[in-house]
């Protein structure tokens, strides 16, 4: 073997060592979360820390679930998530079709405005929006969280428009000659063709809705209306549970699983969606 070859394989080995070491470090917190969730009371505070609980206390999951009304939290989270994802996908696809295919004098100006609103920090509109929803009597209901999803979010509009632009114009021209209306073209041609992109929007808004903390924190006050994101932190407010880290980790694992599973099965779309914004 010559020198260059040895140098090259040493270089490649170094890269693998660095990558494997850094991903191991990154995974430690995950491993710690899972193993903590299975620890017994005594094992929890042992030094050195117990990584493999003997036996694993699966009952922690049951105990955590029953310590707080987690079934209610889960139902609330599901309702909120569905209520936010479906209208968002529908509204964004309509708007994106308008921007991608229909000609109007103000079209490019309005699209620029739409992109510009992405820069606006939500904190600027948060307080007046709260006041409006408060006057409408919507505080402590799901409405302030669901109703805004019927209005299209600029990032998703942008994503879908980029996708719609890749659909050949000949398709809608042919349909127009056959007498199809714009809505029929949107509904019968664009929506079926855009399934992957619509899926990406659905995944993103699912993650956002499932993980949202500040929205429910501002608007929901009764424990019966809490989603998981608010319910999880309740452990901190009950003295007897504040340091039951095994229970807290068990319910954290439970909350993390759905987005994690969705991510694993939809990685390709997901990563495409993330990267689309960076390459305009």
């Amino acid at each position: 073997m010559n020198k260059a070859k040895i140098a090259k394989s040493a270089y490649r080995t170094a890269i693998y060592v660095i990558l494997i070491a850094s991903s191991a470090v990154l995974l430690i917190p995950f491993a710690w979360m899972v193993s903590s969730s299975l620890l017994s009371e005594e094992e929890m505070f042992q030094h050195p820390p117990v990584w493999i609980p003997k036996p694993p206390h699966w009952s922690n999951y049951k105990e955590a679930w029953e310590a707080l009304p987690f079934t209610t939290f889960l139902i609330n989270t599901l309702l909120l998530t569905i209520g936010r994802v479906l209208p968002q996908v529908f509204a964004c696809s309509l708007v994106a079709f308008g921007f991608a295919r229909l000609r109007a004098r103000a079209s490019s100006k309005l699209f620029f405005l739409c992109l510009a609103t992405m820069m606006l920090p939500g904190q600027v509109t948060m307080i007046p929006t709260y006041i409006i929803f408060n006057k409408l009597g919507w505080v402590n209901t799901f409405k302030p969280l669901i109703v805004p999803s019927f209005f299209a979010g600029p990032f998703f509009v942008f994503m879908l428009r980029q996708f719609f632009l890749t659909i050949p114009l000949e398709l809608d021209e042919a349909a127009r000659i056959d007498g199809a209306s714009s809505f029929q073209i949107y509904y019968k041609i664009f929506l079926p063709l855009a399934k992957p992109a619509l899926g990406a929007v659905a995944i993103f808004s699912f993650m956002a809705a499932w993980n949202d903390f500040m929205g429910p924190l501002i608007y929901l006050h009764d424990i019966e209306k809490y989603p998981l994101a608010l319910g999880l932190r309740l452990f901190q407010s009950y003295g007897e549970y504040a340091t039951r880290w095994n229970l807290i980790m068990a319910s954290s694992v439970a909350m993390v699983l759905p987005p994690l599973i969705v991510f694993f099965f939809t990685q390709k779309h997901f990563i495409k969606g993330i990267t689309i914004g960076a390459f305009r």
């Binding site: 917190p29 710690w32 979360m33 993650m207 499932w210 993980n211 903390f213 998981l228 994101a229 608010l230 999880l232 932190r233 452990f235 807290i248 980790m249 954290s252 909350m255 993390v256 987005p259 994690l260 991510f263």
Partner: peptide, 10 residues
């Protein structure tokens, strides 16, 4: 991917 509440607890 982790919900911020869960990672905060962790």
């Amino acid at each position: 991917i982790l919900p911020i509440v869960a990672s905060s607890m962790l």
